[in-house]
Design a protein around this nucleic acid. Structure first.
Ligand code: MN
Ligand code: MN
Ligand code: MN
Ligand code: MN
Lengths: 221, 221
DNA sequence: GTAATATGTTAGATTGGTCTAACAAAATTA
DNA sequence: TAATTTTGTTAGACCAATCTAACATATTAC
């Protein structure tokens, strides 16, 4: 009914909308690395199918049906990432590309089994929430984490999620042994470049650039 | 480089060739439920790509490159089936359709990991051999099993594989608690319909139709 | 408020993967 | 061997998914 290609468009739309509030043809085009005219006609097709609300020159929206479909693909993606890390021994920096493919597998039983074997996890290995079977994200998880870069000297916080997880960032965090759940204390902030010196786990004075701190989502103690 | 669609053609070709010695456009067409003209043009494409040897009105062949590619897809299929049964708790009758999709995942690391977690299995849950990483099937596994239907009264054999495993057959075998590795003794053969009365495991006198016996591959004791 | 730039749309081409209809060759049957 | 049936091929259509080129509208800068 809905193709792999269409699923990828839906998912990208969902991601943009939940980060920035609304989506444009231009952004989608950049995100997917597909030219604007192609995106434009795909939006019309998805509108035909009742998944997207398309009006010329207006921001793109998802219908409720579209939101649900998208969330269910995200669910499959995140369950897969969790499974790969927890049950197969992959590192959190290795799983995205595999999940990008497995999210399109058509087999409710397969993902049911994953969910079960994992004990019905609420978040993926990068701290992002896993939508439930109806496409909803539990209220508790709407809690808006704050960026580490928005913290002040002396703050103590818990590292909860990575906002835009690139391979390079994840490998950097691996190298500093900074993982989800770590309690981080902000020792000092360098006024010149906003870099932070923090302590956590065994590490007593790690320096993190502002670019890094901007990607780390934390919960105040 | 090679699409999911092309992979399915290659695999079907490989299966037909290894069962019947050679393949025709007609057989491929039936197997894949795709009309002959479509198959015909796909064969030309795969010939272009050096995977198939195509000559008008002659039987279809795979090149060495084609054989290897096909075997590597079969490898992914069978490793997946084994993983689903051994590590995720699926029944042997549930895994084929999922494997049919997962076999197309592009990620050497993913299948490496499966192989490793499974302890480098040599056969899939239906007793079919798993090609190695170079696409070869180990010599030992070339052993030609015989059909249970070719056995005689009094023979004792080990159930090694299912030849054409349909859902219905596998469910039937489940219901009779007849699984791979069972030692089967042929008690009697009914001359009228060639049905067999056999004993194995806890069961002392199970009646198996000729249609069933024809699908069970066994190794003489 | 006009000019320049960025964003969005339309038109038309291309490729992959499928089909049906018509024709051709090979195999089977009479 | 001739007729019939089965198998294989060619031609031409269609839809999904992509592109480039050209044009239209909105936004931003001056
Ligand atoms: Mn991901
Ligand atoms: Mn994807
Ligand atoms: Mn199978
Ligand atoms: Mn397949």
């Amino acid at each position: 009914m809905i193709s792999q290609t269409e699923e990828n468009y839906l998912k990208a739309l969902w991601n943009i909308i939940s980060n920035k509030g609304e989506a444009s043809v231009n952004e989608l085009s950049k995100q997917l690395e597909i030219k604007m005219p192609t995106v434009n006609s795909m939006m019309k097709r998805l509108a035909e199918k009742g998944l997207v609300i398309y009006e010329s020159y207006k921001p793109l929206k998802l219908t409720d049906k579209g939101k649900k479909q998208a969330a269910l693909i995200i669910r499959k993606h995140r369950l897969t990432e969790m499974y790969l890390v927890e049950k197969m021994g992959f590192g959190w920096e290795e799983v995205h590309d595999i999940a990008e493919q497995i999210e399109h597998i058509q087999s409710p039983a397969f993902f049911e089994k994953m969910d079960e074997l994992l004990g019905f996890p609420k978040v993926d290995p990068h701290g992002s929430p896993i939508p439930d079977k109806t496409g909803k994200i539990e209220a508790e998880q709407y809690i808006r984490y704050i960026k580490l870069s928005d913290c002040r000297e002396g703050d103590t916080v818990t590292f909860m999620a990575v906002s835009h997880s690139s391979d390079d960032l994840l490998k950097f965090l691996n190298s500093r042994e900074l993982s989800l759940g770590s309690k981080i204390k902000v020792r000092s902030i360098e006024p010149f470049d906003d870099s932070m010196t923090v302590s956590y786990g065994g590490r007593k004075a790690e320096m993190l650039s502002n670019k890094v701190c901007d990607k780390l989502l934390v919960r105040p103690a």
